[in-house]
């Protein structure tokens, strides 16, 4: 069977989550690879969540927030940006490809952008292959 990546998506309830809803309403087509988790703000996504997703075998993690200036809490997404920049360097230092963590600004009106991001991210992850932790597990099980 061909590899279908498993993406954990943290979506801000004010924008990206609404954008995902709109993608559904618009009947946009995108691969069924993402499991969305609604969060109050992308600034609520602690690095622990991303690390935990990778540790439990997610192939990619998407963090979706509002465009700069649009944050419902004024500056939550600026904090997200700082944090995710550092985190993507951190996971690279831990031996993961930093492309496995993707930060996107998707507003509630951008259903098509949501579909496009998921399609692109899925293709990128197929090229990268499964989470290296899963390979190790398979080796141990063999």
């Amino acid at each position: 069977m061909s590899f279908s990546p498993n993406i954990v998506g943290f979506a801000c309830q004010w924008c990206t989550y609404a954008g995902a809803d709109l993608a559904g309403n618009l009947r946009c087509k995108y691969p069924p690879t993402v499991k969305l988790i609604k969060v109050p703000c992308s600034g609520r996504v602690k690095p622990e969540y991303v690390l935990q997703a990778l540790a439990q075998g997610a192939d990619g993690v998407l963090v979706g927030g509002c465009h700069f200036g649009d944050c419902h809490y004024k500056d939550g997404n600026y904090k997200t940006k700082n944090r995710m920049d550092l985190l993507s360097k951190l996971i690279a230092d831990m031996g993961f490809d930093p492309r496995r963590l993707r930060l996107e600004w998707i507003s509630g009106a951008e259903g098509q952008k949501f579909a496009k991001v998921i399609t692109e991210f899925t293709e990128e992850l197929i090229a990268l292959g499964p989470n290296p932790l899963k390979k190790e597990e398979e080796l141990i099980n063999e």
Binding site: K46, E48, K79, R83, L90
Partner: peptide, 17 residues
């Protein structure tokens, strides 16, 4: 997770890119 918490804490004081 100490390191993740340290990252959060340090990231919150960075005022610019």
């Amino acid at each position: 997770d100490y390191g993740a918490q340290a990252l959060t804490s340090i990231a919150s004081i960075l005022g610019s890119e």
